[in-house]
């Protein structure tokens, strides 16, 4: 395993950062770490980087226990923060040279990244837009072709064209054997590049599974038109149904959660159906469903396959 957290807990005084977080990311995987602001994503990353001392539990990178002074581990990691903090008075070139010297030599990907991201390194950081600062952070984090990329909202502030370039660069690094730990609340980017996701909610890992599995199993959008008028109550008692609405006298739109398709089909078969579509919901809709459940009081934690 490249990244491992075992019952990782971090409290800031009485405020919870993360609690009992257990996850692992094998070599070569792109792992998406999803959650809203304040859920504990950045706290987890900072524990992984040895910037925060866990209150309990531990984290390991490349099988080694992460310590506050773990310089050697960080040699193998590239970190990109979505909230770029750099030395305002210095230029992009100064930062590139500084990081290169700290890492013992010029990064193998420096020139390529400068070119592909169309970044001008001669300008002072204080003159850079949010997007250009993000490009600098990406260059600094990726230029040494690290084995593990820890990306915290890496496309924050970038326009769609540059986002596409960043996705392509990440995919190339993964093809070359890199492992990626991507924290984000931009679900489209997670859906695009991640194989597996962990969803963090109020500091706890609410679910962890493959993106395809999550999309395939968790939530479907149902549109059914019957040959005769129906009532919304027709589907109300089928397990896993939600947001059932009549969009016409004969048409029902609803969401199907979990593995209840069989029950649904059996119920639909009791009436003459004229048209039917059942589509996988987007990751965004799946994600929203998690938080809607939370607001409704659902509290159970699940792993592989289970939905809170």
């Amino acid at each position: 395993m490249v990244v491992e957290c075992e019952k990782l807990t971090k409290y800031y005084g009485k405020t919870r950062g993360v609690e009992d977080l257990t996850l692992s990311v094998p070599e070569g995987m792109v792992f998406g770490f999803l959650g809203p602001n304040g859920a504990g994503k950045t706290t987890t990353i900072r524990c992984l980087l040895g910037m925060l001392k866990p209150t309990a539990g531990e984290s390991r990178l490349f099988g080694e226990h992460v310590t506050l002074d773990g310089a050697n581990l960080r040699r193998r990691i590239g970190y990109v923060s979505g909230e770029v903090k750099a030395y305002d008075k210095e230029t992009g070139r100064w930062h590139i040279d500084y990081v290169s010297q700290l890492r013992g030599g010029k990064g193998v990907l420096t020139d390529e990244l400068l070119q592909r991201l169309e970044f001008d390194p001669s300008r002072c950081v204080k003159e850079l837009s949010k997007g250009n600062k993000q490009k600098l952070a990406l260059i600094l984090g990726l230029m040494h072709d690290p084995e593990l990329l820890i990306l915290d909202e890496p496309t924050s502030g970038l326009d769609p064209l540059n986002q596409e370039t960043v996705f392509a660069i990440i995919e190339e690094r993964v093809a070359n054997g890199a492992t990626v730990f991507l924290s984000s609340h931009i679900l489209s980017e997670v859906e695009r590049i991640c194989e597996r996701v962990g969803i963090i909610r109020r500091g706890h890992l609410a679910a962890e599974e493959n993106v395809k599995g999550l999309l395939g199993k968790r939530l479907r959008e149902l549109n059914v038109t019957f040959s005769e008028p129906v009532d919304a109550a027709f589907l109300a008692d089928v397990d896993g149904m939600s947001r059932i609405t009549l969009t016409g006298p004969n048409t029902i739109n609803a969401r199907v959660k979990g593995d209840h398709l069989d029950d649904l089909i059996k119920r639909l078969a009791t009436r003459p159906v004229r048209d039917l579509s059942i589509e996988h919901a987007s990751l965004e809709e799946v994600f929203m469903e998690f938080y809607r459940d939370e607001e409704n009081g659902a509290s159970e934690t699940s792993t592989e396959g289970g939905v809170a």
């Binding site: 980087l49 002074d69 310089a71 960080r74 040699r75 923060s81 903090k85 930062h95 990081v99 700290l102």
Partner: peptide, 17 residues
């Protein structure tokens, strides 16, 4: 507070050093 410590400590630099 400025966040630049994060930039330095995400590199292979020991805190003691």
């Amino acid at each position: 507070a400025d966040g630049t410590m994060e930039l330095v400590l995400s590199q292979p630099v020991s805190r003691v050093k």
